[in-house]
Amino acid sequence: MIWKAWAGALVALLVAGAAWAAENRGPVTNLPLPRYVSLKTDQGNVRRGPSLSHRIDWVYKRRDMPLEVTAEYGHWRRVRDRDGAGGWVHYALLSGVRTAIVEQDMLQIHTRPDKESPVAAKLELGVIARLEECGPDWCELRAGGFRGWAPKTAIWGVDPDEILE
């Protein structure tokens, strides 16, 4: 009897896990939701809904700006920026290239993922950098011809538990 109860509980957990995984994948791309992307162009219209007939609420004007995709509908992606503002953007305006925005003024990037290592450069608040890789606590950034490591807590565009190789 205990074996049957245990087996039933295991099946329930597997079904719940499969449902959770399906819910956290985009219905169009089957990619994880949420996920980070970047703006491919110098400007991108942000619309109230997923079609050209929906009103443009504002325009993003920074190429490579990191955005978080939170939903998908046809050729449209609902995104939000670091301030939590968002809307619907056509997928052609987005890139899978990973970038991050510096959240700390004069952020020191180091030659190694260690705060005691030499400083390679300092980045101003709001700088957009290319994400090269991320470990548990540090990410390697490239910006303005400089390359170095920064703590994840000082940038926006990567989840705290995300590892990029």
Rank of each mutant, 00 (worst) to 15 (best):
R80H: 13
P50C: 03
K122Q: 11
I128Y: 03
L123T: 04
E72C: 07
D42R: 14
V97H: 10
Y36N: 06
V102F: 09
G74K: 12
D57E: 12
E124A: 15
A121N: 10
V28R: 08
R35Q: 08
K40G: 02
L123R: 13
L67N: 04
V97W: 06
A120R: 03
R55S: 13
G74V: 03
R63I: 14
E124S: 15
V59D: 00
R35P: 03
W88G: 01
P27S: 05
S38P: 06
S53W: 13
R98N: 04
Q43K: 14
R48D: 09
L123V: 11
I109A: 05
K61H: 09
D114L: 10
L107W: 02
L123Y: 12
S117M: 06
H54C: 10
V28D: 01
V28I: 14
G44P: 06
L67R: 09
Q108L: 11
T41R: 13
H110P: 04
R80W: 08
S51I: 10
L93A: 11
V97T: 12
R63Q: 14
L93F: 14
Y73Q: 13
R48E: 12
R62I: 04
G126A: 02
T29K: 09
G126N: 03
A129H: 02
R47F: 12
E124P: 13
A92R: 14
D57I: 07
D57C: 01
R77I: 09
V46T: 05
Q108S: 15
P118Y: 09
P113F: 01
H54E: 08
L94M: 05
R48S: 14
W76A: 01
L125Q: 11
L93T: 08
T99A: 03
G49F: 10
M106N: 09
R62C: 03
R80A: 05
S95L: 09
M65P: 00
G49Q: 07
I101N: 00
G86C: 09
T111C: 06
P113Q: 04
L107P: 00
P118N: 05
S38W: 02
A120M: 08
L52A: 10
K115S: 13
I101F: 06
S51W: 12
H54W: 14
E72M: 04
I101P: 01
T111H: 11
V59F: 08
P50F: 10
L94I: 03
E68T: 07
W88Q: 02
L33K: 10
L31G: 00
L125P: 00
A100V: 08
V127G: 00
R80G: 00
P118A: 07
V127D: 02
D42Y: 14
W76G: 01
D114M: 07
E72A: 09
H54K: 10
S117N: 04
K122Y: 15
S95R: 10
R35V: 07
D83F: 15
L125D: 02
G86W: 01
V102D: 00
Q104V: 14
V28A: 06
E124C: 06
A71D: 03
M65Q: 13
H90K: 08
